[in-house]
Design a protein around this nucleic acid. Sequence first.
DNA 1: CCAAAAGTGTTACGTTTACACCCATGG
DNA 2: CCATGGGTGTAAACGTAACACTTTTGG
Lengths: 248, 248
Amino acid sequence: MPATPPAPQAFFKEYLPHISVDCVVFGFDAKGLKVLLLKMKHLDEWALPGGFVRWEEPVESAATRVLRERTGLEQVFLQQFRVFSEPQRSKENKWSSENEALQGWLNQRFITIGFYALVPFEKVAPQPDAISEACTWWNLSEVGQLLLDHNAILHSALEALRLQMRYQPIGYNLLPEKFTMPELQKLYETVLGRRLDRRNFQRRMMDFGLLEKLPERKTGVAHKAPYFYRFNKAQYEKALEEGLAGEW
Amino acid sequence: MPATPPAPQAFFKEYLPHISVDCVVFGFDAKGLKVLLLKMKHLDEWALPGGFVRWEEPVESAATRVLRERTGLEQVFLQQFRVFSEPQRSKENKWSSENEALQGWLNQRFITIGFYALVPFEKVAPQPDAISEACTWWNLSEVGQLLLDHNAILHSALEALRLQMRYQPIGYNLLPEKFTMPELQKLYETVLGRRLDRRNFQRRMMDFGLLEKLPERKTGVAHKAPYFYRFNKAQYEKALEEGLAGEW
DNA sequence: CCAAAAGTGTTACGTTTACACCCATGG
DNA sequence: CCATGGGTGTAAACGTAACACTTTTGG
């Protein structure tokens, strides 16, 4: 979205009416799973980054654009997971903006297509959009009341991510290029919401054949330094296509 | 306030522009999996049953309405699985209709929300809609070239169904109230696309605790007559909520 | 009365889970 | 030098897959 206030009716000319995309952007660091949220102008609430669909683009392109503008990233894992379309979902909200064109646009009924994204936390430079005054990471456990039905969308995205984990690998997009086995394990434990056995986890991960063990070890840590690993991109893509065996 | 200029035509008054729903309706009989298709007027192609979204209803309600009007059924298993939004998906098609309002409506760009439904084959009374001249079941293997991107939607629905099978029970909506174990097995083999061991299948199914064995047996069959079973509705619903263990 | 299909049980195998031991490092 | 965390190995437990035997029925 442009930083300068749009001309009247600009939104209606540029975007399909009634259709929006909302992105649940997941990141991961030592503190656990995080989600990218926007602080809306003139409102006390935070919201998921979202956007609208141009007249000649697919919805995936709209979501990719939102991601690029909020995070600066180009290639991210992005997956549509559900449509949210209750007529009441936008009713409760009374948008009041100094910009009349924007206000008229936002007060439509919107059917929104939910996407979730997995992004490398440390590479993101969060940028607010035209209708928000801040864009920052939130720990998943500390997220409060969100705009409209965005809490439900977030919850649904997390469920979709947990489901994806059952048959596809995650990690490539959520971790830095080089990472340690305990870090990867923490990611899995965080998303699954339960502890895993250290030894069994390592063996299982290696058996998938997606990881390459590097000769280097982590430095500056107490106790025995863990080795670094990285994903084998080709094998990882293959696993995304074909799925993994077994359950968690 | 309405987003698009209020059109004189009835369609624009009644439905949200640019948004449609398409339903992949699966049925099952001795011949295997079937899908419900419509023969379009003035076109040689068949299409998935679809419809549009009223100004004050959620998309699920639109899909339910399509199902009711095409099949006569009220309570069916219905699940949204993906949005199809390529701008080109509707471009190729030149609608020509005797009804000018209809033609103008259909020539919009549509973003469609894909649903799949599981219905009891024998209870369905297929009914064509206003823009089609026939509505019939097709064996999945005999489906040819469909309208627009409907082949892709169908294929995607089948994938979603296979995925659902991995962690939720199917059968309640696809089989008659009373059925035999071989019939249930055939359903699973058909959807999964591979043979299963008769004995192990039976044990596994019973272990799920969803089936009730009835005292009656099938009559008029050669060889040993199989018992009838039925699903325990309460347990089945529970399994749909909580998921099943194990892989196929 | 026998071929074919259905019901029940038992064994073999592999995968997951649980746990033991050794290694490395910073305080 | 020892407490802590990381790396590797092994045995038990569990679930799935493979297979044998009995029962029933129509031709």
